[in-house]
């Protein structure tokens, strides 16, 4: 176990090193001039030249890279060429709302996708399976902004049950002192015992989380179905039936547990993607998450910000991969962590 963690840590370092080289080079080969960006459109040639020196753009590439790398390690991820704010500070502000959304939508994806997948495997090619297939295919194929608008129309406009967007009611925010600890209002509310805050934050989370969950729900449903179908055809399932183990135990335990490994893998991949790939959902729900930050940076060709988000997503992939490996080992004793 310890050697496993050590090895994975080493691997993570190698991967992140590769990512840093890649992002650095990508930012250097694109045509836009970082110095020109830095000083703005009305700057003189002399100002641009001074900015080049300030930003170190005249140094040899390896020197620039080493400076970038040591900055990354020290927590200096550069400054936005647009806002001149530290990139890491921006990411720290945008990350908690994103994570909040991501965690809730993943929980939803499991809570809905796993039972649907079991149902599908149980009633293969029969009506429950067809219905769950319909849900799954709709989930993965429906455009998220359209689903978002539909949900807003229904739950905000018609039923007046849920807010249309944002993280808290503006009235609530004015009347309430919001404790700031983790940056996730739900967690902060829980930590401070502030139930009104938790309630308001959750209410605002529901619609964007449901929208974001649509795709992984479909993914998880199909994955659970296909892995379970495979397991259900194995000898030990017939043996379990021969011992009189009831069907629900066979489905819910004997076939489900071996089927969860592949499911964890696809869910983790979709989570890593969703971390920064949810611009549309965040835009519709006025959600200040990483997706919007990344999109804004892209449009403004704000290279330090783009590089920052890229490194963050790479870290997320590495961490999620590690978690998936641990989950696999926990689910299946034949996998040894070496």
């Amino acid at each position: 176990m310890r050697t496993f963690l050590l090895r994975r840590l080493l691997l993570a370092v190698v991967v992140l090193f590769g990512v840093s080289v890649f992002t650095f080079l990508a930012a250097r080969v694109v045509p836009a001039d970082a110095a020109a960006k830095w000083v703005g459109p009305k700057a003189t040639a002399a100002q641009i030249a001074r900015a080049r020196i300030y930003l170190g753009l005249n140094d040899p590439l390896p020197v620039q890279y080493l400076r970038y790398l040591s900055g990354l390690v020290r927590g200096d991820w550069g400054e936005s060429v647009v806002t001149h704010q530290p990139v890491l500070g921006d990411i720290k502000a945008y990350l908690p709302p994103s994570l909040e959304l991501l965690v809730l939508s993943s929980l939803l994806a499991m809570a809905v996708g796993i039972p649907l997948g079991i149902l599908s495997a149980r009633y293969q090619d029969r009506i429950p399976d067809q219905l769950s297939r319909l849900v799954a295919i709709t989930g993965v194929s429906v455009p998220s902004f359209w689903l978002a608008l539909l949900l807003q129309l229904l739950f905000f406009q018609k039923l007046k049950l849920l807010p249309v967007g944002g993280r808290l009611d503006s009235v609530f925010r004015l009347a309430h002192s919001v404790p700031v600890m983790t940056g996730s209002y739900v967690l902060d509310g829980l930590l401070a015992g502030d139930w009104a805050l938790v309630g308001s934050a959750l209410k605002h989370l529901i619609l964007p989380a449901v929208t974001l969950a649509a795709y992984p729900i479909g993914l998880v449903t199909r994955m659970v179905r296909s892995s379970m179908t495979e397991v259900l055809g194995e000898d030990h399932i017939r043996a379990a039936r021969a011992m009189g183990i009831p069907n629900r135990t066979i489905l819910g335990r004997y076939a489900l547990k071996p089927a969860m490994g592949p499911t964890a893998t696809v869910l983790a991949l979709s989570m890593a993607y969703s971390l920064s790939g949810t611009f549309l959902i965040e835009a519709v729900f006025a959600w200040p998450g990483l997706g919007r930050y990344a999109a804004g940076a892209l449009i403004a060709a704000d290279y330090p910000a783009i590089m920052g988000v890229t490194v963050l997503v790479a870290i997320a992939y590495v961490v999620l991969n590690l978690i998936v490996d641990l989950v696999h080992a926990w689910l299946d004793p034949r996998i040894s962590l070496r």
Binding site: D235, H236, K257, D332
Partner: peptide, 12 residues
């Protein structure tokens, strides 16, 4: 059954 290697569930 014939093959005790596959007659048990591998994850319990």
């Amino acid at each position: 059954f014939q093959d005790p290697a596959t007659a048990f569930n591998p994850v319990f």
